[in-house]
């Protein structure tokens, strides 16, 4: 294993992580809810789910984050390396998988881990493992 030191950004990663944790912590302290993006979005897609106002407002805050970011400077880099067939496949798998698995990197990865949930630990180990495996196959076995 070689470390990519030129792209390694420990301080912004840690600081961004802290903001994410504080945001998730505030949501549970004030609203009593889990800041899991797939769960919030999936529940808004189901007619008649409870707490739609609060869920929608959390997601609205998330959506307008880049507009607030622009007040302080230019947006951080966003570089896609996947063509349209890959993006469609990835979106479908992420949509179905997070709903069956009841969470994603936010709901299981941050909130679930922080509340020491064994289910979330298993979920994180599963999506990390298949994420690592997928990149290995696409980049090193097929991409050659």
């Amino acid at each position: 294993m070689t470390i990519d030191w030129t792209n390694f950004t420990p301080w912004s990663a840690l600081a961004g992580g802290l903001l994410i944790g504080i945001a998730a912590g505030s949501f549970v302290l004030f609203n009593g809810r889990i800041a899991g993006i797939s769960g919030l979005l999936g529940s808004l897609l189901e007619p008649g789910s409870e707490g739609r106002g609060e869920k929608a407002l959390f997601l609205l805050g998330l959506l307008v984050a880049p507009l607030f970011w622009l007040l302080s400077g230019s947006l951080p880099e966003v570089e896609f390396q996947t063509g349209w067939p890959g993006l469609v496949a990835a979106g479908l798998l992420v949509g179905i998988g997070t709903r069956y698995g009841a969470g994603c990197t936010s709901g299981h990865g941050v909130c679930g881990m922080a509340r020491l949930s064994p289910r979330s630990l298993v979920a994180v180990l599963c999506f990390m493992a298949s994420g690592f495996a997928t990149v290995f196959v696409l980049r090193h076995l097929l991409g050659g």
Binding site: A89, A90, G91, L92, L93, V94, G95, I96, G97, T98, R99, Y100, G101, A102, G103, C104, H108, V122, A123, V124, C126, F127, M128, A129, S130, G131, A133, T134
Partner: peptide, 8 residues
């Protein structure tokens, strides 16, 4: 579900 999510 989590394995499928990780592939995506």
């Amino acid at each position: 579900g989590s394995l499928v999510f990780g592939v995506g």
